[in-house]
Design a protein around this nucleic acid. Structure first.
Lengths: 238, 238
DNA sequence: CGTCGCTTTGATAGCCTTCAAGAAATGTGG
DNA sequence: CCACATTTCTTGAAGGCTATCAAAGCGACG
């Protein structure tokens, strides 16, 4: 872990501060946050933040980059249970027991902030409790939206729904919502959506051929948002 | 709201206390909990606990009975986003904004405890903060499990997975895990699982004919747990 | 007894999965 | 810089499973 300059908070220069736990704080309050938070060393693609069985002593806030969480089922298969972008919570399920039941992996270079679970109560005295609850609520909303999305039986609906949700998450960060650097592989995305790689590929290529989207490696540009939204009628409220 | 006997806590006689927010408390600490909690009047089948657009001033703990949460999508369709049984949290997504984006409805007679969101920080000074976080963690784990379940493309796998999760939730309450009073209609269950009513009916009846389960209205008895588990290979870890 | 809502059963068609193979991109070593 | 190996992605064909449409059975309730 790098030596931190304690004159300012780790949040002071954080690019995602405005949507994270320090959103409501300023000045002195910010510097006290460092008593609860610690920023990780930079992680690289494939680096493991925590894995199944690790003691769940922290939860995490994504500072930069993107992460995926995976679970190994009884049948030995891997499931991608979610992706986390800057300002989003990671490791919330660790609150229920002493050990994680999932693995969090960096999709590219990125950093996180650790919060010791024992220090969580202190967030309220530091004025960040409200913000933490809001992040928990947003996390819950995201899970619900993902769940509604998975209830769609048609593949285009699920994929368009995922892209719509990704748009919202990137827009929240101030990024261009039609320019999605999704970071994850097609395999991971298909897995997360409960589809086969082939099916995902076919749908994306159909949209690419019809000019709805443009794909370039892990980057997906949305050229015709309206037509995409037509494929995801289930996400009208988000 | 009924007049409460303040000599003892609303939790003192609560049947689900051991798995709820007061699990770690006793005696004096319990009685202070009432400053944060208030028990609802009994609700009846179809009664609405809160609805989309209501101010999210509380979150809820199910005290008895069962509830469903539904969302209306842009296309005007209803989605059943979840079911809540005793000791489980309700309304968590209300933490993110001033208003609920979902509706919570009683599936039968039941009661809840309200927690004013403004009083949440006080739970820590009362010694119940840890328990709240654990409930949040369990809620998150349940959502992840539901999500993994929905990733299954085969209907029997989804249904068996749901029943497996229901077993765990009932076992947590000390009920017979092979005797599931699911409370919800077939329509709601099919909706929640992203299946059609007909498909759900076919699978359940196949199992009924082969003696894997027995159905009686909203009651499902599991006669051959092993065979059911074979249909849900994705939930080995739970 | 008859209505109404919920559930069950049937037949068809469409979509996704599966299996298989080829193309493109990436990484490595010479 | 290029040849080769590996991974990732794309494309094709066949089959199975679920959705859809339609209708009948069943139970609750008045």
């Amino acid at each position: 872990m790098p030596v931190l300059a304690r004159a300012t908070s780790v949040c002071t220069l954080c690019p995602t501060r405005s949507v994270c736990i320090a959103a409501d704080l300023d000045g002195a309050a910010l510097s006290h946050l460092d008593d609860c938070l610690s920023t990780s060393d930079p992680l690289g693609k494939g680096d493991i933040l925590y894995r199944t069985g690790d003691r769940s002593e922290h939860c995490y806030l994504v500072r930069s980059g993107a992460f995926k969480t995976t679970e190994t089922t009884g049948a030995g298969e891997e499931y991608v249970t979610g992706f986390a972008f800057p300002g989003e919570l990671l490791g919330l399920s660790g609150l229920r027991a002493a050990h994680f039941e999932e693995t969090a992996i960096a999709l590219g270079s990125g950093t996180v902030c650790r919060i010791r679970l024992q220090e969580l109560p202190r967030l309220w005295s530091l004025g960040a409790g409200q913000a933490l609850l809001r992040l928990i609520g947003e996390h819950e909303r995201l899970r619900i939206n993902l769940q509604v999305n998975l209830c769609q039986s048609r593949a285009p609906a699920r994929i368009a729904g995922f892209l719509s949700l990704a748009k919202l998450r990137f827009a929240r960060l101030g990024f261009d919502p039609n320019h999605l650097p999704l970071s994850m592989s097609r395999t991971d995305l298909a897995n997360h959506l409960g589809l086969t790689l082939e099916c995902l590929s076919r749908v994306l290529n159909t949209w690419r051929r019809t000019g709805v989207i443009d794909t370039d490696r892990d980057l997906i540009r949305i050229l015709k948002p309206d037509e995409l939204a037509c494929s995801a009628p289930h996400l009208g409220g988000v």
